[in-house]
Amino acid sequence: MKKYAVVTSISYPKKGAMGKTGSWRVFRPTLDKAKCVKCLRCWIYCPEGSIRREPDGSISIDYEYCKGCGICAKECAVKAITMKREDEHE
């Protein structure tokens, strides 16, 4: 990345500028790959961009930064994503 020799406050892009925001999460979205129809609505609606598009057209969830808002689960037309409490997981 190009750094500028300017004497002023310049911020540089960084993934996770506010830390690992996945720690904010109370409910964890879990994907049932068998039910998913690859419509990508979760991917486009995710405010955080935490749904990854895989090369084969399927999706996966990035738990490192997912804030657990639950929009993906609510907007999923086939109910392939469900929200489970973090402590109930596994």
Partner: peptide
């Protein structure tokens, strides 16, 4: 269609927005 929208993200993950923020949703698009 949704699948034709580019994959590249200029809005990085781990920002300070509230969960469920419509502004980041709009910014991504």
């Amino acid at each position: 269609a949704i699948k034709d929208i580019p994959v590249e993200e200029c809005m990085l993950q781990g920002n300070a927005a509230c969960p469920g923020c419509p502004a980041t949703m709009g910014l991504r698009l």
